[in-house]
């Protein structure tokens, strides 16, 4: 049981920046950013290749910078060339497949063998520290490191979103007319928002890559839907208002999702291959919920209406 919780916390924090990124793009900017899948692999590829070259720490900021570039391409296509936002993401995502292969040295997967990662560095550091309390938590090194990174960046984003630039970005997703009337250039705010969101996705990829000591060209498939599922799960648990709850919801949702994943994996109530289908159904239902509720209330109205008429006819 403890093992399940530990695994869930590790993966929950490692992947948490993906729902945080989607919170920025999907909730704040109101853009479904499909760059996410490719951007996640890009982050992982940059970070693993850097670790392979002996620079695991430098690999993290570089991966984020690569993510910023990916976000910029999507934003440029959307704001300047007027490509619809979903298509912009898909185009960038498709292009990233080749870029990712290029980063990985034209190989579809790359693994770390004896090279250090940020995780192994912390693990060794804790072991050698000769401080009892540090040695005791050595097993939890991955949870600690990923949690610290996630919390730092979550706080930074929260602080950023209440700055004047942050407010402008939030207003862009809220009321575009008002933004233009307030001397804000929406092309600029959308670009900044997408760059930050993709930096966060790449950060998550970078952490996952070094943690698993491997990167695969297909490891990002479906990440965007899983991220949305995490965000929606989190929002269901802790709510959406005031808006800063969204970031906390993203992180909590990511952990809850991984708890569910771990339980399914270890108890084998379902073959684990089913998870992506279930995730997709959960996301579709959650996003469709308002429409479904409306349809049911409309059907109810129709039934009441015909009943009312029937009653009169009988009388």
């Amino acid at each position: 049981m403890l093992y399940i919780i530990k695994t869930a916390l590790e993966l929950g924090f490692l992947y948490a920046m993906v729902p945080v990124a989607l919170f920025i793009s999907y909730r704040v900017l109101d853009i479904a950013d499909l760059t996410t899948d490719g951007c996640f692999v890009l982050g992982a590829a940059v970070s693993v290749m850097m670790a392979k070259a002996g620079h695991p720490i430098l690999g993290i900021p570089l991966a984020m910078l690569a993510g910023v570039c990916a976000g910029f391409v999507t934003a440029f296509l959307h704001t300047k060339l007027k490509v619809p936002s979903i298509l912009s993401g898909i185009i960038t995502n498709t292009g990233l497949y080749t870029i990712n292969l290029m980063v990985m040295g034209w190989s579809s997967n790359q693994s770390l063998l004896k090279q250090n990662t940020i995780f192994s560095m912390l693990k060794n550091g804790l072991k050698k520290s000769n401080v009892l309390i540090f040695e005791k938590i050595t097993d939890w090194y991955a949870v600690i490191l990923s949690a610290v990174i996630v919390i730092i960046f979550a706080l930074l984003i929260l602080a950023f979103l209440s700055t004047r630039l942050g407010l402008s970005i939030r207003a862009t997703g809220d009321n575009l007319d008002m933004v233009r009337a307030s001397s804000i250039n929406p092309a600029f705010t959308i670009t900044v928002g997408l760059c930050i969101a993709n930096a966060m996705t790449a950060l998550s990829g970078a952490m996952v890559g070094q943690y698993q000591k491997t990167v695969d060209i297909n490891s990002g498939t479906g990440i965007v839907v899983i991220g949305l599922a995490c965000l929606i799960i989190g929002e269901t648990i802790i709510g959406r208002r005031p808006f800063f709850k969204g970031i906390i919801a993203a992180i909590i949702g990511s952990i809850v999702y991984r708890v569910i994943y771990a339980v399914v994996l270890y108890t084998k109530v379902l073959p684990v291959e089913f998870l992506k289908l279930i995730t997709a159904i959960v996301v579709a239902l959650a996003i469709a919920f308002p429409a479904i509720r409306k349809w049911f209330s409309f059907q109810g109205k129709k039934i009441n209406h015909s009943r009312g008429k029937g009653g009169k006819d009988n009388a």
Binding site: R170, A171, N175, D177, M178, I184
Partner: peptide
Amino acid sequence: GTAPSMSIEENLALAYL
């Protein structure tokens, strides 16, 4: 003219930009 999900204060801050 206003951003509905943001507070009165935040809307004014944007106008101030």
